[in-house]
Amino acid sequence: MAEKNYYTIDPDGKLTCMKCGVRLEKGKAKFLYLDNGFPVELPVCPKCGFIYVPEELALGKVLSVEKALEDK
């Protein structure tokens, strides 16, 4: 059963991991905050696992979820 992802971005081959020298791919990640977790799909390095959080995501969705949880 596929888990529902709260957010998905595909790197479209536009990002490269400097350490591993490979392209980032769409990969499984998880947001964790104040004991709450949400599955997401983000650009991830297939070798070292570096997860990229783009600025729009950090200042948009991530921030609004943070705020909502902070006031729980």
């Binding site: 499984k28 983000l42 696992g49 600025e55």
Partner: peptide, 27 residues
Amino acid sequence: WVKYEEVDGGYRVHRAYSHRMNIVNRL
């Protein structure tokens, strides 16, 4: 998060942002 370019002897910072949420890998 810091967005930068490498310059002679160091870095030039273009953007910076932050989040409090932890983001971890999931199998």
